[in-house]
Design a protein around this nucleic acid. Structure first.
Lengths: 340, 340
DNA sequence: CTGTTAGCGCCTTCAT
DNA sequence: ATGAAGGCGCTAACAG
């Protein structure tokens, strides 16, 4: 932006040709004399010309930039999503602008507004925990700005989505706990209106049902996911008369909090109570005992979401909403497997 | 960018005024009739007008966007840096574009090139592990694009920098190990030409010296920071005749790898060997035993770097290179403290 | 094959 | 207090 920046006009003047010739030469237009092109390209290099993407964006009415909104930048899971989106975008000649909503509905609205102001060509969004209303998305429809939801999605927004098969993952995990001999499995979920809460509970319930076990509502608990609440619930579980023999915590950090409580209270994992989480955060591998969990292909989610959005932008696929559901992988570690 | 986007021309036509009047009204120019302003603002709102930042950028020759380059998006430390930068930028009315170099010199060069092409107003950069030459930064000088280095910096680039006091942190940590009775402290560093390797080793050496202990070169080891190499070095240490009674691993992941090896080999931590890391990653808190480490104010680093760069951009401070060195905090956990 | 012209949306003199 | 006009850097008709 500073004075040092070379423009095609500079090149044109130096070479005594018109700007359009320079423009064409630089973009490999076929209708240009090879010699002219060579001269221009050489001069551009010599002068260290770098096209002004801002001007191109204004002219072409597209920025070749994707907007990303995630609840939190510092979460390893979202960071991996972003990494997947980023690499994909770069590979296809796009840039990204990233925003974090800090799990706030208001900030999410602001983020989208900002990105729209920046005229991104499309958006990739993971909803904040607070988001319950969706006008800001309907504005996107009006303005005809394509977007794709990933991970934290809502059924109320008719748009393409990329998620993992949460209920399957939870089913497999529950089945694994049953295989290990557990018959009294507690399930701790996050806020009930969260998509993942619903889906994972679904898998848990189905696994019990298929196994022919009764569902005990008193073993299904809801946390607001603060450490305080997580620990309170864990404590209540170990103090029960019919203590569970396994606990399925809906996300890893929750599982880690539960683990702390069990250990503080001398409850042996997995001998007395088996424990499992969901997500496969880096921490889950290093806790003691290492945590059985369900791995989600975070990088892949980002990659797929980005590729799909770009396909839409470039007219390679229809813009009809599609749902992509990726498979999870059960990661069995020591917290759920009794030593023989 | 799509057809739905309202421009000041649309507003002007609807109100039968000129575009300049609309422009002025929307930017609170004093020389406008209050009534006119009111009408225009109301109409803008009604039509859901959002200024086209691309056009503004082109016109004003500034994008109000900062470019960020970090080695890795998924590292918790860098993610926290970014979070600090992001929040600060937003607060001051700027956007950010983020790139990851994947620790590659070539990609770092590309990233900077891309961001310059996008005409960011300034750059915040943390060097890749590979970066040993700095022409791409000298290009930034030529183009008069301000930038600031943070965390991974180089003394060979004369520019403002934000770092933590690595040598002090290492000094304090070593002193703590000495306080705990260790007299044979090993130091495992990363590649020797890394800035943080140098600085942390410096602190380690100084602490020994001040304590009057001899330096044993055979206890100073260098890892390439792959898990494989980390573990090999750990193994070599516990097999030594004069086994160290403490190990200071230069970064947490390295310390965690060492911990695994010690545990696998039945070495008691901290009774037989005390262990400490550096960075205070989330994992360090949950490993067993919890890891003594040095906390770096990652969010603050980002915040300070962003504020300084913005101050420069807005002419609030001189552009002479300044160095900001933030303090670290010793975080004492169980891996270094023997139970009484 | 090359040049001329107009215009993307906005802001800013310069008039009035 | 308002309008008209030029231009930021680039591309895309339209001519020739």
């Amino acid at each position: 932006m500073k004075k040092g920046q070379v423009t095609i006009t500079h090149i044109a003047k130096r070479l005594k040709v018109s700007v359009s010739t320079v423009s064409r030469a630089l973009r490999d237009s076929p209708e240009i004399h090879p010699d002219t092109r060579k001269k221009i390209v050489a001069m551009a290099k010599e002068m260290n010309y770098q096209p002004n993407l801002v001007a191109q964006s204004l002219r072409n009415n597209k920025t070749r930039t994707l907007g990303i909104v995630v609840p939190e930048l510092t979460s390893h899971f979202f960071a991996s999503n972003i990494s997947g989106i980023y690499d994909t975008a770069i590979k296809r000649g796009y840039n990204v602008m990233i925003c974090q909503s800090n799990e706030s509905y208001e900030q999410e609205k602001m983020n989208i507004r900002t990105l729209v102001g920046s005229r991104v060509d499309g958006l990739l969004i993971s909803l904040s925990r607070e988001t319950r209303s969706y006008e800001h998305f309907f504005e996107l429809y009006e303005q005809e700005i394509p977007f794709v939801l990933f991970d934290r999605v809502s059924e109320e927004i008719p748009v393409s989505k990329v998620t993992v098969n949460d209920s399957n993952g939870a089913y497999n995990l529950t089945q694994h706990l049953l295989d290990q001999g557990a018959r009294n499995i507690a399930f701790i979920s996050g806020p009930e209106d969260l998509y993942i809460s619903k889906k994972r509970k679904e898998g848990y319930l189905k696994a019990l049902e298929d196994f022919g076990l009764p569902i005990k509502p008193e073993l299904i608990l809801v946390s607001d996911l603060t450490t305080e609440c997580n620990k309170k619930i864990a404590k209540s579980l170990i103090e029960r008369a019919d203590r569970p023999d396994a606990i399925f915590a809906m996300i890893d950090p929750l599982a880690v909090d539960v683990m702390m409580v069990l250990k503080e209270n001398g409850v042996k994992i997995p001998e007395e109570i088996a424990l499992a989480g969901f997500t496969n955060n880096p921490t889950s591998e290093v806790v003691e005992p290492s945590l059985t969990t369900v791995s989600q292909p975070a990088y892949q989610i980002g990659k797929l979401a980005a590729n799909h959005l770009l396909d839409q932008l470039e007219g390679l696929v229809s813009t009809d909403p599609q749902s992509f559901v990726l498979d999870t992988t059960l990661v069995i570690r020591r917290s759920s497997v009794k030593a023989k």
